[in-house]
Design a protein around this nucleic acid. Structure first.
Lengths: 205, 205
DNA sequence: GTCTATATGGGGATAGAC
DNA sequence: GTCTATCCCCATATAGAC
């Protein structure tokens, strides 16, 4: 059905426009005016589709957490070494940041704004985080990794990967190149792996 | 003179209120209404003092860069080892982030918003950054440190320390404690030092 | 310097014709 | 579904009485 396809495309346009605007200006700072313009719709038309600004924002947050849910848990095959698991996790998180900069930034802006819209997403996210921390604590007991604090390790990996979404502008000035460049991406990937694995007392591949 | 003291105090009130509001909502999202309320002034009174919202924002950015200017350059006594210099730098940057969370966040929000207000501050900041990178490159030549990319090391240290300002909310949920707690601060400080120094192939103290 | 009042524009959201 | 017109609120900023 033609109308259904259009409907889907309009929704995709709106979602993308909303991600761009909310990521740049936060919930309060973004305007439905600007979102409508970016989506190529009249403001009244936009409101017809989204219901309310708040509802649209929740949809955007939902999109983000759905995607993150799939990459946030350690892929811990019994056969894998701590170095492999951590390295794989870094790669996934970094790739998501590099390929979904605006979506990633929305979380940062929301946290800085006080995080009041995150209440429904915290529990799931914390469960995954805790499960990873348990795995790390297991490694420490088996002396497969130095006696660090698993919570801080997870947070530090977060900080290092999230940086390349939030601070892409700064990074590209300092590196004098584009983060879209696969060569630069690989350089960042390798450097993060080396820093963190060595920092954990492990040997990078 | 009484009036001069009042003038100074009013300006300090306004600046602090502005830092809080701009850090939470960014330049566009923050309102002079809210800043005035927070500073205990009438809106018209606030405008009398600040000239314009844009001018106030520039003052806030100036305050931030003035403070950062003092801590951004390596304190490289000839006698100090790379480990000492990096460790000292981490401590300074982390302490600033922990003790000036809102001010630190303003930079993150501004960068994410596109960084258009930073043009006058970039040059100085880049000079200091470049000078540090030169020092690191020197260490690599003398084989005092592994052959990493100095630019990425600086960025990664930035990311790790800035996290504890921007993501204080997340950190306190995960750590189940307050980042104001000196014990927790010391734990973070030590963990960051260990991670980065080991990650550089150096020995933490 | 400080207040009230107001100018002017943009915000989210809706009504109603088509 | 889509458009124009409109409601009502809040935004930045200023004018003018005190």
């Amino acid at each position: 059905m033609q109308s259904k396809i259009n409907r889907l495309e309009i929704n995709k346009n709106i979602l993308n426009a909303a991600i761009t605007e909310f990521s740049q200006h936060g919930y309060i700072g973004a305007s439905t005016q600007a979102i409508a313009r970016r989506a190529g719709l009249a403001k009244s038309q936009l409101h017809y589709y989204i219901g309310s600004k708040e509802a649209l924002y929740q949809r955007v947050l939902g999109t983000l957490f759905e995607a993150w849910g799939e990459i946030f848990e350690f892929d811990s095959q019994k056969s894998s070494s701590p170095a492999d698991i951590i390295s794989h996790y870094i790669d996934l998180k970094l790739n998501f940041a590099l390929q979904n900069k605006e979506l990633s930034r929305i979380f940062t802006v929301e946290i800085i704004s006080g995080g009041k819209s995150l209440s429904q997403f915290w529990p799931d996210a914390m469960v995954r985080m805790s499960s990873n921390i348990e795995v790390i604590n297991g490694w420490i007991k088996e002396e497969k990794i130095r006696a660090l604090d698993g919570r801080l390790l997870m947070m530090n990996i977060w900080a290092l990967t999230q940086y390349y979404a939030d601070y892409a502008l700064q990074a590209e000035v300092i590196l004098e190149g584009s983060l879209e460049d696969p060569v630069l991406q690989e350089k960042v990937r390798k450097e993060l792996n080396d820093l963190i694995l060595l920092g954990c007392g492990l040997t990078p591949p």
